[in-house]
Simulated scan of single mutants.
Amino acid sequence: MTTWPHRIPFDLHKELEAHTIDGWQGALRAWAKTLGLKLKIQSWRQLEITIADPHSRRYMAKPKGHWAAIKEWLERHEVPAPDKLPGWPEVDSVTNY
């Protein structure tokens, strides 16, 4: 078991960007299903409240803001991180001429 990274996993970031209709809940469920994570739905309400807080301040939360709340919730409920999370693609280096 590894620890959850501070940076949002690439695949979750893409899920959050893609799920505009059902929002972060659909993205989190889809992401958890692909990784085989077992989420404790009984404690889902606290995560909803935490994520709703930035939205109550009248600005759109970004995926990294959602990740901070999700990461804290995963750790609090002792959901183990998979051994290998998909990483971010490498940026091509710029060649100086």
Rank of each mutant, 00 (worst) to 15 (best):
D22A: 06
Q42H: 08
K14Y: 00
K84E: 09
L16S: 01
D11W: 06
H13F: 03
N96I: 11
W44R: 09
K64F: 10
K64V: 09
D92Y: 09
R29P: 03
A81C: 15
P63K: 03
G65C: 04
A32I: 06
A18F: 02
S56F: 08
G65N: 12
V79C: 08
M1V: 01
I8G: 12
K84V: 10
W88Q: 10
L12T: 03
P54M: 01
L39K: 01
W88L: 06
T20F: 09
V91T: 15
S93R: 13
L47W: 05
K62V: 15
E17G: 12
W88N: 09
L74E: 07
E78K: 15
G26E: 00
P5Y: 05
Y97I: 13
R58K: 11
L85D: 03
W24V: 03
E48G: 12
H66S: 07
A32V: 06
L47R: 00
Q25I: 08
W73R: 08
W67A: 10
A52V: 00
N96K: 09
A68H: 12
G26K: 01
H6F: 06
A68G: 07
H66K: 01
K38P: 02
H13I: 00
A69D: 10
A61Q: 05
K14V: 03
H77Y: 15
V91M: 15
W88A: 08
I21Y: 03
H13P: 00
W44K: 08
P5M: 02
P63D: 04
P86D: 14
A30L: 05
H6W: 05
R57P: 00
T34H: 04
I70T: 06
E48A: 07
A30E: 02
R57C: 00
P80I: 15
I49F: 02
D53V: 01
T20A: 11
P89T: 10
P82Y: 09
I8L: 13
W24E: 04
W67H: 09
K62E: 13
W24Y: 14
W73A: 07
A30F: 03
L16Q: 03
I8F: 10
A32M: 02
H55N: 00
S43V: 06
I70N: 03
T95Q: 14
D11T: 14
A69I: 03
G36E: 05
T20C: 08
V91E: 15
R29C: 04
R76F: 03
P86T: 11
G87S: 12
L85Y: 13
L12S: 05
F10W: 14
V91A: 15
H13W: 06
A30K: 05
W88R: 10
L16N: 02
